[in-house]
Design a protein around this nucleic acid. Structure first.
Length: 530
RNA sequence: GGUGCUAUCGUCUAGUGGCCUAGGACAACGGCCUCUCACGCCGUAAACCCCGGUUCGAGUCCGGGUAGCACUACCA
């Protein structure tokens, strides 16, 4: 029986969306797209105490930024949340009535029972009895509908006593879970406890019940989620069975975890702060605890780089390809090639990916994205052609857009001091004399000639740019036998303030004749003879 | 403690019994290019957790160790 592929990403609005969650969402999306199926987004907000305002918006905005499209459920459109689809509502807190009937079904069929034990009583049990577990061995010693008269239970409920509904796990049964990534996993039901399915205190189900009911009602065909859910998968299988839904039970795929880059353990928010890289897609201001978490977007990452980087953390393609567009990923993705073991988060590779994708963007786009950084440094330059030009000259040496500032600042601000190391190595005794002579030559160049250049073939047959300024400066250096390196490096120091930057004629081209001459004059007087 | 999952270069990984003298990528290192710093290109170094077994042959299959991780809530 071929079912339509329907997958879901079902986060809890308890804070910023963790990068591991982003990857889970991505794999779900790729799987859905590849099979021409649907990608759903459902909010699992059954724990009212952990709700964080703004988290839902954050999650949807993050997916939108990354290009992980949602076909059904909740999604962000033009900055607004919208709900689409016939299986709503898509927030579990809005589905209370739906869950009621299913809780009742389990109660009526004897698969569940009502328990009155308070959290304090349970806590006392757990401290008194080592490894205490609410299960077949202990349930008959507790305060529940299995040990009390029906009238008594009814009376307690009517009195308003808080209770929970627990799933009655039958003991000593090997439960088989077929996992698409790990194969057959078998767990004995003895190690499962009678999980709480519903709590009367807030009239909400817990994750396990809501999850199964919703996945069933929403006709989910594949559950692709993190490995932390593997231990509870047998419980979910038992739940499907108790409802009589085993024939349409989704297939499971448990993804390996994302681990800390150093040491061991699951990647956490603290690791990002500690090691200085974001673990969240977007910057998040947590209104509940007042913390601010940095995000990939704000750090200058391109969404396509984040996607590519994340896709390859725990999955590899059919060949040796490293660069993948979203479309490439959709074509090549396969759960067969998802790793079984956890992947340490390799931030360095993320940088490399961003570098690659930066080179692919047009100079105009990058200039636009670079504007805020310029503004932050007090440069209110509106000459976008000029910005695009300097960005084009320097983008291949940065990983992130904000880093561009260190590469291009001298284009906007004349050097006020000169790098000591560069001076020591490149500013010679004769440099002031060289610069004065050079100045005389540059003065004689017309504005038009100043910016002109042509293409030439070098001895290797490669096309190179030959500037007009080469034609006037190089013969002079050759005639005087000054040495190209000596003159050009001193010249560079005058213009840049250090021995770095793009090709010298690209710099003079952007700076223009007058600014170039001014800078050389300033340098001659300010540096003089060391 | 219990249960489960996992185990190849520093990191992400290829590998499904002979194509493995273990391949690719990031990072590292060296060289080339060059007026500088970069980029780029070329190259070097770098791994099958341990012990048994099966087999003519094991990174690959099996068993046992060991280690790491996850779960063990009226959280998801």
């Amino acid at each position: 029986m071929e079912r339509r592929v329907r997958v879901r990403f079902a986060p809890s609005p308890t804070g910023a969306l963790h990068i591991g969650g982003v990857r889970t969402a991505l794999y779900n999306y790729l799987f859905a797209r590849q099979h021409g199926g649907d990608m759903l987004l459902r909010i699992e907000d059954t724990d009212s105490t952990r709700f964080v305002p703004g988290a839902e918006e954050y999650i949807l905005e993050a997916l939108d930024w990354l290009g992980i499209g949602i076909d059904e459920g909740l999604r962000m459109r033009d900055g607004k949340i919208e709900a689409v689809g016939e299986h709503g509502p898509y927030r579990q807190s809005e589905r209370r009535e739906i869950y009621h009937q299913y809780v009742k079904q389990l109660l009526d069929s004897g698969h569940a029972y009502i328990a009155f034990d308070t959290p304090e009583e349970l806590e006392a049990k757990r401290t008194a009895i080592p490894n205490f577990q609410y299960d077949a061995r202990t349930r008959m010693e507790m305060r529940n509908s299995l040990t009390m008269q029906a009238e008594e239970v009814q009376a307690l409920i009517e009195k308003g006593e808080k209770y929970v509904v627990r799933f009655k796990v039958e003991p000593n049964e090997d439960v088989h879970v077929h996992d698409l990534i790990r194969g057959e996993v078998v767990i004995n039901s003895n190690i499962l406890d009678d999980k709480v399915l519903y709590k009367s205190a807030d009239d909400l189900p817990t994750y396990h019940l809501a999850n199964i009911v919703d996945d069933h009602l929403m006709e989910i065909s594949h559950v692709i989620r993190g490995e932390e859910w593997l231990p509870s998968a047998p419980l979910h299988v038992l739940l499907y069975r108790a409802f009589g839904w085993q024939d349409t039970m989704p297939q499971f795929a448990h993804l390996p975890l994302l681990l800390k880059p150093d040491g061991n353990g699951k990647l956490s928010k603290r690791d990002g702060d500690r090691l200085g890289f974001p673990v969240f897609p977007l910057e998040f201001h947590n209104q509940k605890d007042g913390t601010v978490s940095s995000g990939y977007r704000e750090c200058g990452y391109l969404p396509e780089a984040v996607i590519n980087f994340l896709a390859l953390l725990g999955w590899h393609g059919s060949g040796d390809q490293e660069m993948y567009t979203m479309d490439d990923l959709i074509k090549d993705f396969s759960l067969d090639r998802v790793s079984k073991s956890g992947a340490k988060f390799d931030f360095e590779k993320g940088k490399w990916f961003n570098h690659q994708y930066l080179q692919l963007r047009s100079n105009e786009e990058l200039a636009e994205m670079f504007r805020p950084t310029l503004l932050a440094h007090g440069i209110d330059c509106l000459d976008m052609d000029m910005i695009a030009k300097v960005v084009g000259l320097t983008k291949d040496r940065v990983n992130f857009i904000p880093e561009l500032w260190d590469q291009v600042n001298f284009f906007f601000v004349a050097p006020t001091e000169y790098d000591e190391k560069s001076l020591k190595k490149r500013w010679k005794e004769d440099s002031p004399k060289h610069m004065s002579e050079l100045l005389a030559i540059l003065e004689g160049v017309s504005e038009e000639e100043w910016h002109s250049c042509r293409e030439e073939k070098n001895e290797n047959g490669e096309t190179v740019i030959r500037w007009h300024l080469d034609d006037v400066v190089m013969p002079w250096i050759a005639e005087k036998e000054y040495g190209v390196g000596i003159v050009m490096n001193a010249f560079r120091i005058c213009l840049v303030g250090a021995a770095r930057g793009p090709h010298i004629w690209n710099i003079t081209d952007v700076l223009g004749k007058q600014e170039t001459i001014d800078r050389v004059q300033t340098a001659i007087t300010r540096i003089g003879n060391l």
